[in-house]
């Protein structure tokens, strides 16, 4: 176990280092110069002296390798540098303010998706070709097919404009805000959008893997032994059918960023998805680089945890 963890950790460090170099190089290769963005429109004359002063102030006049080393060294010491755009605000603060928003959104969405998708997937598999199975299939197809952007806007129109006109304020919930996080109500619509797609994907995977498990020899043997149906399904079929679901969950962590960009933009939520797109568009080097490295760490860790989870779910898998 320990040699395996050490090997995987070293591999992870190598991957993170390569990603940090690649991100640094890509940001510098992107056409455009942040100095021109900083200068803005209000200039009567822009002198070279002025451009040089801004470059000096942000360390952009140093050779690239020096810029990388300074940034990487500072990052290792926990100093993420300063934002070019949000002057005076440390990048670390920007990221650590954004992470909880995205994390909460995704965790709640995932929890809801699991609670709905796993029982639905199992039930659909056990009652194949029933009305419930067809309903799950239609729901899952719609959930995957509906673009997040469209769904988000439709939900806002429905819950912010029409529901209050039709029935007034919702009991227990009250008024749902169209954007931002003025209270817990702000999470309702974004979580609904995010969980819809996850629910659809997970329900389909769960249904397929349960059907597969139900057809295996060990399930037949369990039935032959005279075990009750529920016990066979839950203890023998479902436990094995969960493996692909765990894989999908681990795999989807890498897509948190792309999944939340749209949702965070439409609902004006200050999460990492919006921070990332804003920073890329405005060439805020330090923010993009630090965020990508942080996400790389997250993905590497999630992959490791997924592999460890296999051993827990399936005792036949041994970590060595």
């Amino acid at each position: 176990m320990i040699p395996y963890l050490t090997r995987r950790t070293l591999q992870g460090i190598l991957v993170i280092w390569l990603i940090s170099v690649a991100t640094f190089v890509m940001m510098r290769l992107m056409p455009g110069d942040p100095v021109y963005l900083l200068l803005g429109e209000g200039e009567i004359r822009i002198t070279q002296e002025q451009i040089d002063a801004i470059r000096r102030r942000w360390g952009l006049d140093r050779p690239y390798h020096e810029q990388y080393l300074i940034w990487a060294w500072n990052l290792l010491r926990g100093d993420f540098g300063d934002s070019l755009i949000r002057v005076g605000v440390p990048v670390r603060d920007m990221i650590f303010e954004a992470v909880p928003v995205t994390a909460k959104l995704n965790l709640i969405a995932l929890a809801i998706a699991l609670v709905v998708a796993i029982p639905s997937g199992i039930l659909a598999a056990v009652r194949r070709n029933s009305f419930f199975d067809y309903l799950t299939a239609v729901g899952a197809t719609l959930g995957v097919a509906l673009p997040n952007f469209w769904l988000a806007l439709m939900l806002i129109v429905l819950f912010v404009l029409y529901v209050p006109r039709w029935i007034g304020e919702l009991p227990l919930v009250g008024r749902i805000p169209p954007f931002g996080l003025p209270g817990w109500q702000g999470y309702i619509l974004p979580v609904l959008v995010l969980s819809t797609e996850q629910m659809a994907v997970l329900a389909r995977v769960m249904r397929a893997s349960t059907i597969e498990a139900l057809g295996t020899d060990y399930v037949r043997t369990a039935y032959a032994k005279g075990l009750p149906r529920l016990t066979v399904i839950l203890r023998h079929a479902v436990r094995n059918a969960l493996l692909p679901v765990v894989t999908v969950i681990g795999y989807r962590i890498a897509f948190i960023l792309s999944g939340t960009i749209v949702v965070e933009t439409v609902f004006a939520l200050p999460g990492i998805g919006r921070l990332f797109t804003d920073s890329v568009m405005r060439l805020d080097y330090q923010v993009v680089q630090s965020l990508v490295v942080l996400l790389a760490v997250l993905v590497v860790a999630a992959n490791l945890l997924t592999d460890l989870a296999y051993a827990f779910v399936d005792p036949r898998i041994r970590i060595e």
């Binding site: 954007f179 933009t265 004006a268 919006r274």
Partner: peptide, 14 residues
């Protein structure tokens, strides 16, 4: 900060 113009419109209406 509301980046999406349609949401700004809905927020005004509501």
């Amino acid at each position: 900060v509301v980046p999406e113009p349609s949401v700004r419109y809905i927020a005004l209406q509501s």
